[in-house]
Design a protein around this nucleic acid. Sequence first.
DNA 1: GCCGATCATTAGTCTCCTCTAACTACCGGT
DNA 2: ACCGGTAGTTAGAGGAGACTAATGATCGGC
Lengths: 230, 230
Amino acid sequence: MIGDRVLDCCALPHTSAVEDTLRVVFVRAGRSEPVSTSALADALHVSAPTVSIMLKRLTAAGLLRRTDGHLAALTDHGAAHARDVVRRHRLLEAFLAQELGVPWDEVHAEADALEHAVSDRLLDRIDRHLGRPERDPHGDPIPRGTGGLDEDWGVRLDAAPAGSAFDVERVYDRDSAALRYLADLGIHPGVRIDVTGRQPFGGPLWVRIGTIEHALGDPLTHLVHGRVVA
Amino acid sequence: MIGDRVLDCCALPHTSAVEDTLRVVFVRAGRSEPVSTSALADALHVSAPTVSIMLKRLTAAGLLRRTDGHLAALTDHGAAHARDVVRRHRLLEAFLAQELGVPWDEVHAEADALEHAVSDRLLDRIDRHLGRPERDPHGDPIPRGTGGLDEDWGVRLDAAPAGSAFDVERVYDRDSAALRYLADLGIHPGVRIDVTGRQPFGGPLWVRIGTIEHALGDPLTHLVHGRVVA
DNA sequence: GCCGATCATTAGTCTCCTCTAACTACCGGT
DNA sequence: ACCGGTAGTTAGAGGAGACTAATGATCGGC
Ligand SMILES: [Mn+2]
Ligand SMILES: [Mn+2]
Ligand SMILES: [Mn+2]
Ligand SMILES: [Mn+2]
């Protein structure tokens, strides 16, 4: 936490816990995943009561609304702050990967800590140093200014029909071990995959990367997003 | 704060406040400055009672001793942890200055925040990336391994006799405005200064850098350390 | 030897973050 | 209608860190 970035506007201190919650709500909502108390507890590695109390505080501060099924949704104000945290997070991920060669399965954890400690001034230096990158190592767009963020996740790999080709654009960065495995297979943003077949009843998806063929289970295919091209 | 660096050994959480206190005690003691409650409160930008309580906790954890005049001194154990914080701090300063061009009067504040968020793994990447630097932008030695740290501050510029030359080795980094001014004058580690004269009764010291002559008051000369060479 | 200034500590409060345990609300199945 | 499980919240507690106000200790000056 750097002292000078405080949510004066909403009478809420800009702590790590607050920032992390805003970021996770933003990203999950962008993926159209349900933002429930338990899902947040899981993602943030805290207990459900801890999330419950945090959501109440964020709601009181006008950053969050509760929808029908206890779910959480950011207000415009909350989304603006969340975007700022996401920007810091992804820009740091890009920096760590490009400048220091941190592998893409490690950058998330590092950025999760650094995002609260980097000043706006330093962040802008990093941005300039990298030449104002558009995407982080997972293909996630880096929010810039107030311009509309392209939070389009495209199509999930498991939705690609057999016989089609698939351009990988984004890979969800939650699971380090999965990222490591996908990288071993050569799956990362910018790569074209041939979908060769699909077993029925949730069976594995057969894909070819280069000349090698692999069977991918749902937990993996659900992480890979992009476009069907043929 | 990154979760995995906890002082298990001393039953004390490795928080920012704890780390900052250890670092400041270490550096002040290294400069042979009195480490009093009020001096720490001033340096850490907290109230005296806050320091008082922290010193009691550190003492209870065996990281600190109280000497005669209420002063604080690190135990060997405390010094070992403090060294680690100082290493993170100075290595980050060096990285920010060399890789991102952050000016030397800004690196301290940035490192003060980042030092608690950087993992050991990332720090080692930074270290390797910089080629294992020995000194930070202020000329301060970067502790490495368990080897003896050269915390020699040499001689203060105000102790240099008129007519002598003075090699600047270290500049104390506490005061940003002073660092900015000294940089404008061309005073930084590696520079040779000619001491041309000294006014009596605490008057200014006259120095020549290159061809330009300047009068420096005590607040400035006390920050500049090095060796008298002639 | 007293007086005031300075310094340190104690006392009392506050906020934030986290937990466990208990309770409640809901929902599906029988 | 009932029962059990899941999800969410409430209740209660504790630690860390911060503050102000009051109190205690120390020391120099006169
Ligand atoms: Mn974080
Ligand atoms: Mn990412
Ligand atoms: Mn710090
Ligand atoms: Mn320094």
